[in-house]
Design a protein around this nucleic acid. Structure first.
Lengths: 306, 306
DNA sequence: TGATTCGGATAAGGATTTCTAATCTGATAA
DNA sequence: TTATCAGATTAGAAATCCTTATCCGAATCA
């Protein structure tokens, strides 16, 4: 397409001078000296080969050419300014884009999101649940909540909470022919596994080894692609899930799940809030991060441990 | 009003890059290197505190902010370009503003102007007849036709023709009781003077002295503020005018006036075409100047001298 | 699988543009 | 007549802008 335009700074100088009909006032507006405007305008006239002003001793007038030129230029600069303002505003008020893992979204964030909406009705949140680790340099997210080791180069990282893993089940499993009272009772129940792919996250094998319980095979039971599905199965009394505290906080609070017995296993993994450094301090992002920490302080990101 | 805009060159670089979704292509368009675009865009993102592109390895994408920004900027630059083109065009094709002395307008230019219109139907001519000497640095004229000594600083000056002065009268004055056959016959006729204010232009006093004729008082007769009025009076047989050849060329040709006798007096004054140096070579101005010289060559700016 | 290509990032230094300070000019106002 | 005002001009300083050279990582190719 290749536009042919005179030097842009000269255009701006001319536009201001034409608006004020004064080089001195234009200079004030643009925070330069009168000489600078004089130079720029002369340069523009030279480039165009057209004189734009008639210079009197204490008065400026536009030539015909200048008169046809100025209004359109003013419009163009106005439009640029408006576009800049609009873009800045939208950047501040546009939807906050958050990326989280599927299970965390389902079991932690989404149930709590109405509380954020109540606190900040003006901030729209777009939640993108995704299992793949999102690359902030590639995608255009404002904030992410990640379960991991906390090593995220080029990102601002805040530890949201340390997580731990323990067995949960429906209260119904305390009743019936084989009530689940001790780890040994697991023998009579289905184990619910999630295949979450964090190799360092404790699984049933670790837990059984840790407790030293005999006669329970760790590889029995159902497997689910996502923690949230395993939890859903546990709520449905289909078995016992070994799952992260953070994901079942609300279910335990509501009594949909119980912790039949300990222990809880710590892991190296924890929950981190990450955001691109360049935008980490934008108001809407700070608002969301602050709210996250308040929520964790309130309910305990992980459920209270008995 | 004071606008706050990011650096304009950075805006241009961004706009081109956003349009092509390629820094390299933008660089080609703006005739700079890819590195220059990279710098400008980065600088813009820094100034705004907002990232505008998502950089992939062989692909660029606009962020949301970039996407809202670009179209408006493109519009603004389009408008600037259009304004520039429009102004240039109008400068070429807009009316040609010519300033001439009153009498020259009436007696020379206006009668010939239809010929110019026939040759250049696309060029509108605006004739400003004015007795005061027009200052081209103050007023916005393309061309002037001046009677004078040819010393016009800062202007391009072309000699249109040398002028001379001689007596003219209506052919009717050759008849009647006192036919005008020799200078001495002037005694019985009214002298027509113009008060043109060019002190060096010969007047009746000079002419009578030059011819050596006796018994004719040079200060008799009627006086007119403009040569054209004196000529009009001569055509009406009201007397004998001493006038510039250039102004009566057409009247002599048409037989409305005759030259009863010589001599013609030279003067230092001549007719010059002047135009501001900066615009002297613009097509429409050149066209008009060329036409002026053609007209002079055709009819003889001054009437043919017997 | 390794080489190549492609497109952007980066660092350092140079070139150009832009600006300023100081002064001049010429007209108007006091 | 003098003061003032607004723009022009000049020379040189400051800031911006650009280039060269090189790096990097992914995609493509052989």
């Amino acid at each position: 397409m290749s536009r042919r335009l005179p030097p842009l700074n000269a255009l701006r100088a001319f536009e201001a001078a034409a608006r004020h009909l004064s080089f001195t006032k234009a200079a004030e507006e643009l925070n330069v000296t009168q000489a600078a405007i004089s130079h720029q305008v002369k340069g523009l006239e030279d480039v165009l080969g057209i004189s734009l002003f008639r210079r009197f001793n204490r008065r400026l007038m536009l030539t015909d050419a200048g008169q046809t030129y100025q209004p359109a230029l003013s419009d163009a600069f106005d439009q640029m300014e408006a576009a800049t303002r609009r873009m800045r505003l939208e950047e501040q008020t546009g939807p906050l884009k958050v990326t989280v893992a599927n299970s965390f979204a389902a079991k932690w964030l989404l149930p709590r999101l109405p509380a954020f909406r109540a606190r900040h009705p003006d901030i729209d949140v777009m939640v993108a649940a995704s299992d793949s680790i999102v690359d902030f340099t590639r995608d255009d997210f404002d904030l992410g909540i990640r379960f991991g080791l906390g090593r995220y180069p080029n990102l601002r990282v805040d530890l949201l909470f340390d997580d731990e893993v323990f067995p949960v089940c429906s209260p119904k499993l305390l009743e019936g022919p084989h009530p689940l009272l001790t780890p040994a009772d697991l023998e009579h129940h289905t184990l619910l596994h999630d295949e979450v792919g964090f190799s360092e996250l404790p699984h049933w094998g670790h837990w059984i080894e840790k407790t030293g319980v005999q006669g329970v095979r760790h590889d029995r039971g159902h497997r689910y692609s996502h923690s949230s599905l395993a939890i859903q199965a546990a709520i449905g009394a289909q078995g016992v899930a070994l799952t992260r505290a953070s994901l079942v906080g609300l279910d335990l609070e509501a009594g949909r799940l119980i912790r039949p017995f300990g222990p809880a296993l710590k892991s190296n993994y924890a929950c981190y809030v990450v955001s691109p450094k360049s935008t980490a301090d934008k108001p809407k992002i700070t608002a969301f991060r602050d709210w996250l920490f308040d929520e964790v302080g309130k309910t305990g990101g992980a459920a209270a441990i008995p």
